[in-house]
Write a protein that binds this DNA or RNA. Structure first.
Length: 361
DNA sequence: AACTCGGGGAA
DNA sequence: TTCCCAGAGTT
């Protein structure tokens, strides 16, 4: 539903973006994947590779969390050619702790396609970009606007929130953004589409925050219908989430004679897909399954339990540990050092840390 | 259209 | 605790 009442129709296309971009020119966040506005205004453009990596990392992941991962990643694989040469397992290890591990595998697959079908050059239109693995409507539009400074309409959580408040849209947030798009097209900047998108994101991060927005310092306050009518606290509207189910299981930490930990590669589909972890039992809702350690040994259960929160359920793991002499050929044997720990998904890192602490006692 | 995918920062 | 984060892919 598009709401074009008298107040919102006065939102002037060029005046809005002028106010926003003047604010951005002074207040832009200094981010490692970003060319600052004083340089983009001189025609210097962002590196599509860096914008791509950052956009994938930033999917459902905060800027603060992403920065160090981004710098490490770019240092190790500075361009798409190098990334294409990387091993998928190494990319997954570099991704460990970020979550949503499918992103890392899609990244590798996408690099392959870019190198083999696009001669190492990122497409500059959303139609081609959305064909690539891991790149949906949002990321395609972000690359087109931010990296190539062409007109496109990335709609992330920030832009969704800001536009909803500007036009006082009370609709429930959905996957389908066509509604918001109509309103966004009334206010965006044709001259600086890349900076406009980033300015909206910075505004959403610094001023127009989800809770307690600092409206008194907002550069586009006079255009905001939700502020005018004091409805911003309930916009955007979201339904409250259902309570998470509790799942329980066992984590098996097998240690070889040469003090290495036995790891296996999880199936590509499903939770923590493709990552290399200690084996676990099945995870049953509300009760522990019967423990069945995968290798012969003198298994003991730790007193401490591991609690970890996923998006859709809470996990409680009992940790079992044993010395293991016989194991299959296809396992991964890794030394118990910081590199190994930091290459594990967070839940597994926590479990291994608990396990080896007790093992050393 | 509804699920499934992690993890952490911040209030 | 709860919410939210520069979402995409699958069902």
């Amino acid at each position: 539903m598009i709401k074009l009442n008298q107040k919102t129709s006065k939102v002037n296309h060029s005046k809005f973006s002028k106010s926003l971009l003047e604010w951005y020119d002074i207040n832009a966040r200094n981010l490692p994947w970003r060319i600052p506005p004083e340089l983009t205004k001189e025609g210097i453009t962002n590196d599509p590779y860096k914008i791509w990596i950052s956009e994938i990392m930033l999917q459902q992941t905060g800027v603060k969390t992403v920065q160090s991962y981004f710098l490490n990643f770019i240092k190790r694989w500075p361009n798409v050619i190098e990334l294409n040469k990387a091993k998928e397992d190494d990319v997954l290890k570099a991704w460990s702790g970020l979550g949503y591990y499918r992103r890392a595998r899609n990244l590798k697959n996408c690099a392959k396609t870019i190198c083999e079908k696009y001669n190492g050059i990122f497409p500059n239109c959303t139609e081609e970009l959305t064909k690539l693995p891991g790149i949906g409507n949002y990321t395609a539009a972000a690359i087109v606007s931010i990296a190539y400074n062409k007109i496109a309409f990335p709609i992330d959580g920030n832009i969704q929130r800001i536009v909803s408040r500007l036009f006082e849209i009370r609709d429930e947030i959905k996957n389908d953004k066509t509604n918001l798009l109509e309103n966004l097209k009334e206010i965006f900047s044709q001259k600086r589409p890349g900076d406009f998108a980033q300015a909206m994101m910075d505004l959403g991060s610094i001023i127009c925050k989800p809770a307690n927005p600092t409206c008194n310092s907002c550069p586009v306050l006079k255009y905001c219908l939700a502020h005018k009518n004091n409805t911003y606290k309930s916009i955007p509207f979201k339904t409250k989430k259902v309570k998470k189910v509790a799942k329980k299981g066992y984590l098996y930490i097998g240690i070889t004679d040469c003090k290495k930990i036995i790891l296996i590669k999880r199936p590509n589909n499903g939770l923590l897909g493709g990552t290399i972890c200690p084996p676990t039992s099945e995870w049953k809702v509300n009760k522990f399954p019967i423990p069945k350690p995968p290798y012969e040994g003198d298994w003991k259960v730790l007193d401490n339990r591991l609690f970890h929160s996923f998006t859709h359920f809470e996990l409680e793991l009992k940790i079992m540990i044993s010395k293991v002499k016989h194991f299959p050929q296809n396992v991964y044997l890794e030394p118990l050092n910081d590199y190994t720990l930091n290459s594990l998904p967070t839940v597994m890192k926590k479990g291994v840390e608990m396990g080896i602490t007790s093992f050393n006692d």
